[in-house]
Computed example of a mutant assay.
Amino acid sequence: MTTQTIKKNLTVKEAIESRHSIRKFEQETITKEELTEIFELVRLTPSAWNLQPWRFHVITDNQLKEKLQEAAYGQKQVTSAPAVVLVVSDMEDVIAHLSETVHPGLSPERQQEEVANLSSFFSGMSVEERGQWGLTQTNIALGFLLTAIQGLGFASVPMLGFDHEKVKELLSLPEHIKFGAMVPFGRQASEGYEHHRFPLDKIVKYH
């Protein structure tokens, strides 16, 4: 049975408390304006040194979603959702464009110093190490994405159960990128499970 569409513009508290992983979605197109509204929020995600290594690939083409479903071992939420976002980290692109991450309010000398320091820091890492470092930052953006989706009246389900190499091939992504998640989303057409979370005294320690 179709559930009532979540109202738009939930508070942060409402969005977090109401978010569940949803695997069946209404067959309702998400507009370009709605997608833009989501990603205008997500791009404000903070990151170390403002490097912003996250990149988002939004798939709405039905044939491509069918191929993604195959790569996700047949999980039906991939084709049920009107849109699927691949959240990836691309640190090699960041390294190639470090000057774009430096705040324009700094003096030219300070900007050059920042680029030099960052280049030196990351040149001491392997491509794999840089990729893993960038993924820790990209996971922050994943949290922002899930909250923005929910807060603007949609539902989602984050996934890592898919063949990463096959998805790279389907989207012509470079080998070095790291996946944060595959996120099908849309208007929910089913209820998620009730929250089952650890109590605070297990996850929060005060010192």
Rank of each mutant, 00 (worst) to 15 (best):
V88F: 02
T138M: 04
F121C: 13
E128D: 15
T138Q: 08
E92V: 02
L118S: 00
D90E: 06
T138K: 05
A81T: 07
P104F: 10
E113S: 05
S89F: 00
T136Q: 14
V87G: 07
E92R: 01
I140A: 03
N117H: 07
L98D: 07
R110E: 04
S80E: 08
K76G: 13
M125Y: 15
S120G: 10
G124P: 03
G131Y: 00
V94I: 04
S119C: 04
A116D: 05
E113H: 02
Q137I: 05
E129I: 09
T101I: 05
Q75R: 11
G124K: 14
F122L: 14
H103K: 13
E109V: 04
S89N: 03
A81N: 04
R110K: 09
Q112P: 02
Q137R: 03
T101S: 15
D93I: 08
A116W: 01
A116N: 11
M91S: 07
G131K: 00
L118T: 00
E109I: 04
A116H: 06
S107L: 05
V88R: 05
V87N: 04
T136C: 11
S119R: 13
H103P: 04
A96F: 01
P104L: 13
V84P: 03
G105H: 07
L98H: 03
L118E: 01
F122P: 09
A83N: 13
Q137A: 07
Q112E: 11
L118Y: 00
H97C: 10
A83M: 08
S123R: 11
G105N: 14
G124C: 10
E129Q: 15
H103A: 14
S123D: 14
A83W: 02
G131F: 00
L118Q: 01
V84S: 06
S119F: 00
E129P: 09
V94S: 01
V87K: 02
K76R: 12
S119I: 03
P104D: 12
E100F: 02
H103F: 09
K76Y: 07
N139Y: 03
T136Y: 12
Q132F: 06
S119N: 13
S126N: 14
T136F: 11
P82S: 07
V127M: 13
E114F: 03
T136M: 15
G105D: 12
D93H: 14
S123F: 01
M125A: 15
V84A: 08
R130G: 03
A116P: 02
Q75C: 12
E129H: 10
P108H: 06
P108T: 11
V84Q: 06
P104A: 14
T101L: 09
T138I: 06
S99F: 04
A96R: 05
E109H: 01
Q77N: 13
P108Q: 10
R110Q: 10
Q75P: 06
H103S: 15
Q137C: 04
A116L: 08
V94E: 01
V78T: 05
Q111M: 01
H97T: 12
A116E: 12
N139D: 06
S126R: 09
A83H: 07
T101E: 06
